[in-house]
């Protein structure tokens, strides 16, 4: 997957540009979408608590892989939504989901030796969409592109809203 910084910046760019046209995307919602973009990265919890430890507790083989899939994003976005005040739930869930989905799509573009990405539509399909193999995560140019594009969007956003303090 792309690194967490790139995920978060991609969601920032997406939502900020969308907010230029869609008034409903207030400044408080962009960070929620950025948080949602981090959901697929929760798979990295597996580095701290490996799947063997989970298997020891639940007694059956376990994989963290669904965390970085459509099903994982739908459920974990729901769990995070509960941390918001009731009247924000609908919007919080929508923004968390959009951010997470953007990360899944971005990850679906990374390089795989056989030309197919992970089955990230799980559990709705096991299909492995073809990937254009645009990048590998360890390539620093990925994050550099993310930072540059986000900086440009940030500057334009400031200019469009001169009252922004």
């Amino acid at each position: 997957m792309a690194d967490l910084l790139t995920h978060v910046l991609a969601a920032y760019v997406l939502l900020t540009v969308a907010s230029w046209r869609i008034d409903a995307i207030g400044s408080e919602w962009t960070p929620v979408g950025m948080g949602g973009a981090a959901i697929p990265d929760l798979i990295k919890v597996g580095i701290v608590v490996d799947n063997g430890a989970i298997e020891g507790v639940i007694g059956v083989p376990f994989s963290y892989a669904p965390v970085s899939t459509l099903g994982g994003v739908l459920l974990i976005a729901g769990a995070i939504t509960l941390a918001f005040e009731r009247r924000y739930w609908r919007r919080a869930y929508a923004f968390l989901f959009v951010g997470g989905l953007a990360s899944l799509v971005l990850d679906g573009l990374r390089a795989f030796a056989d030309g197919n990405s992970n089955p990230w539509l799980y559990p709705f399909a096991w299909w492995q969409p073809p990937t254009p193999s645009l990048y590998v995560t360890s390539d620093p140019r990925v994050a550099v592109v993310g930072i540059v594009v986000a900086a440009v969007v940030f500057a334009v956003d400031r200019r469009l809203e001169p009252d922004f303090s």
């Binding site: 799947n51 989970i54 639940i58 083989p61 376990f62 963290y64 892989a65 459920l75 799980y122 559990p123």
Partner: peptide
């Protein structure tokens, strides 16, 4: 349910 998905995926 997330843990359940993890079990299903692995199997």
């Amino acid at each position: 349910v997330v843990v359940g998905l993890g079990v299903h995926y692995e199997s």
